[in-house]
Design a protein around this nucleic acid. Structure first.
Length: 490
RNA sequence: GAGCCGUUAGCUCAGCAGGUAGAGCAUCUGACUUUUAAUCAGGUGGUCACAGGUUCGAUCCCUGUACGGCUCACCA
C-alpha cells in the first residue's frame, strides 16, 4: 500500500480539486437508461451523424482515456461490456470539462448524450453531460497486459473482475448451472431445504471437520462435512423428495481440486434405488450441459467430453480388472495385498479386501475415466451409509461418476435398516478410536430417526465446483470460486 | 506433506563473471476538438519479497523464512 502512496496522493489531490468545484465526488444515485450492450444492439445502424432524437444515459468505469486538448475519448465499462465516449469542451462546457480533466482511469462516471459513429467506425456516445459517480483512488493495472498475477487475482478478485471480464462469465455460468439443476429438480417435485451448518455431530462423509465452540451452549460444534444425515431425517419426516445446495467444510489439503469450503448438491428421493438415481443423474447433468452450452459435447482441457446419455457403466471390480489386470474377486485378502503392493500401492497392511480394491481403483482407473462414466457396486467397508447388494453383502448399491479423471458425484441406495446402520456406526467409531481422523461418531439421533422407519430411498451428491470446472473449462477449483481460500498476505 | 519454479516501479516484464537497476504501459508537466496500444517533447517513481552468510562490494552466489504457481501423494 505504501508503494502506491504517490499515485494515490495524486488522485486524492484531484479529488480535493473536484470538491473545490462544488462537485460531490460520491453522489447517492444515478439513473442510466441503457447498458453498453443495449447501446451496441439498439444503435447498430447509427452512422456518423448522431442520433439526435434519442438521448441516453450510461454509467460505468473509465477503462481508457485519450485526452486531445479540448476534447477527449474514453472507454466506459459496465456490467456487460464497453463503449467509447467522446467528450468535447464545446459540448459539455468549459468548467465541466476542467472537472472531467481530473477524472482518472478507474473512476465511475455517468454520461448523458447521443450516439454516433466515429470516422473509424466505432459506436460512440457524444457527451453533453459527464458526471462523477465515484472517484477511484487506487490505480488499476495496465490496459494492455491487464492483471496476470494469479495471487493478486485470487486475493483481489474485485480487481480481477474489473480487468478480466471473461472471469465474470465463468461465474455467470456457475449460477446458470445451479439454476438449471434447481429448475429441473423443482419441476420434478423436489423441495429445496436448508439444514444446519453447525452440527453437534458431523457425519455423512469421511473427512476431518472444522471445530468451533458455542459459548452459551458450552459445547463444541462442527462445521458440516456433509448434510446427508439431515436430509435423510427429512425423508423420515415425510418429505419424499428433498435437495440442498450445501456449503460443506473439510479440514484437509488444498489443491486444484480441493478448497476447504465447497458446494455440494445433495438430493434424496423416497422409493427410488440407485439405478433410478443413475438415470436421474444422467438426465440432470445432460440437461444442464445442454441448457448452459446448447450442446452435449463440450471441450475440457485436451479432450472433448460427450455428456449424451446413456453413460458408460462399469462395476468397480470390473473396472479394476480391466485397467490394472488384477482380478480382486479371485484373490484372497493376503494375495490381493501382495498384488497391490507389487503394483506400487502404498498400504499400511491392515486394509481389508474392499479397501485395497478401492485403492487400486483410485490408482489405476480413476485418472483414465475421461468420458462420463458410472462406477457401480462399491465395497461395503468404504460405504457406511449404503445398502448391501441383495446377492452379495460384501458390496453395496452405490455408484460414483467420473469425468475427466475427476470424481464428480456419489450416490447410493440409502441404508434404512437401523440395526445394520448401528453396526456401521460402531465400525466407524472403532476406526476413530484407532486414530482414523476421517472416521466419525455414532449419531444416536440419526439412528432414532431410522428406527421410526425410513422408506427405501435413493440419494445423490454432486460436487458443484467440479461440475462448474468441467462446464467452464477451468483447470483449478480456484477459478470457479469467487474468493478461494488463501494464506494471509505476508 | 514432497519436488521443481517464481517474487525487480502501480501493472506486464527485461537485466547482471557480483560493481547498489531498465523498458513499455500507467502517472506528472506542456502541445493537440474524430482518437482508439492516440501522437509529440520533457519529468517523477525502486530497502530488486524478508532475514542471515560469503565478498572490498550482493538484485545477482549460498542458507533459511514468507507467499504464490506447477507436478506428485491424500481427500469431494
Amino acid at each position: 500500500m505504501e508503494e502506491t502512496k504517490e499515485l494515490i496522493q495524486q488522485r486524492c489531490d484531484k479529488l480535493n480539486e473536484i470538491r473545490e468545484f462544488g462537485v460531490n465526488p460520491y453522489p447517492h444515485h444515478y439513473e442510466p437508461t441503457h447498458t453498453t450492450s443495449v447501446i451496441h444492439r439498439d444503435f447498430a445502424d447509427v452512422q456518423e451523424t448522431p442520433a439526435e432524437t434519442q438521448r441516453i444515459r450510461i454509467a460505468g468505469r473509465i477503462m481508457t482515456k485519450r485526452d486531445h486538448g479540448k476534447s477527449s475519448f474514453a472507454h466506459l465499462q459496465d456490467s456487460d461490456g464497453r463503449i467509447q465516449i467522446y467528450v468535447r469542451r464545446d459540448k459539455v462546457g468549459a468548467e465541466p470539462y476542467l472537472i472531467y480533466r481530473r477524472f482518472d482511469i478507474g473512476d465511475i462516471i455517468g454520461v448523458e448524450g447521443v450516439v454516433f459513429r466515429t470516422r473509424t467506425g466505432e459506436l460512440t456516445v457524444l457527451a453533453d453531460v459527464v458526471q462523477l459517480l465515484s472517484k477511484s483512488l487506487r490505480p488499476l493495472p495496465e490496459k494492455w497486459h491487464g492483471l496476470q498475477d494469479k495471487q493478486t487475482r485470487y486475493r483481489q478478485r474485485y480487481a480481477d473482475l474489473i480487468m478480466n471480464p471473461e472471469v465474470k462469465n465463468v461465474f455467470i455460468k456457475r449460477t446458470q448451472i445451479v439454476q438449471a439443476i434447481r429448475d429441473m429438480l423443482n419441476a420434478r417435485s423436489f423441495i429445496e431445504v436448508e439444514t444446519p451448518v453447525l452440527q453437534p455431530i458431523y457425519g455423512g462423509a469421511s473427512a476431518r471437520p472444522f471445530t468451533t465452540y458455542h459459548h452459551t451452549l458450552e459445547q463444541s460444534l462442527y462445521l458440516r462435512i456433509a448434510n446427508e444425515l439431515y436430509l435423510k431425517r427429512l425423508i423420515v419426516g415425510g418429505f419424499e423428495r428433498v435437495y440442498e445446495f450445501s456449503r460443506d467444510f473439510r479440514n484437509e489439503g488444498m489443491d486444484r481440486n480441493h478448497n476447504p469450503e465447497f458446494t455440494m448438491l445433495e438430493l434424496y428421493q423416497a422409493y427410488a434405488d440407485y439405478l433410478q438415481i443413475m438415470e436421474l443423474t444422467e438426465t440432470l447433468i445432460a440437461h444442464t450441459v445442454e441448457r448452459v452450452h446448447g450442446t452435449m459435447k463440450i471441450p475440457y482441457q485436451a479432450h472433448e467430453i460427450d455428456f449424451t446419455p446413456p453413460w458408460c457403466r462399469l462395476t468397480m471390480v470390473d473396472a479394476v480388472r480391466e485397467f490394472s489386470g488384477i482380478d480382486t474377486l479371485s484373490l484372497s485378502a493376503d494375495e490381493l495385498y501382495t498384488e497391490a503392493v507389487n503394483a506400487g500401492i502404498g498400504l499400511a497392511g491392515d486394509e481389508s479386501k474392499g479397501e485395497i480394491t478401492a485403492e487400486l481403483f483410485d490408482a489405476f482407473v480413476e485418472p483414465k475415466l475421461i468420458q462420463p462414466t458410472f462406477i457401480t457396486d462399491y465395497p461395503i467397508e468404504v460405504s457406511p451409509f449404503a445398502k448391501k447388494k441383495p446377492d452379495n453383502p460384501e458390496f453395496v448399491e452405490r455408484f460414483e461418476f467420473f469425468i475427466s479423471g475427476m470424481e464428480v458425484g456419489n450416490a447410493f441406495s440409502e441404508l434404512n435398516d437401523p440395526v445394520d446402520q448401528r453396526q456401521r456406526f460402531i465400525e466407524q467409531a472403532n476406526r476413530l478410536e484407532r486414530g482414523d481422523e476421517e472416521a466419525f461418531m455414532v449419531d444416536e439421533d440419526y439412528l432414532r430417526a431410522l428406527e421410526y422407519g425410513m422408506p427405501p430411498t435413493g440419494g445423490l451428491g454432486i460436487g458443484i465446483d467440479r461440475l462448474t470446472m468441467l462446464l467452464t473449462n477451468q483447470h483449478s477449483i480456484r477459478d470457479v470460486i469467487l474468493f478461494p481460500q488463501m494464506r494471509p498476505e505476508s
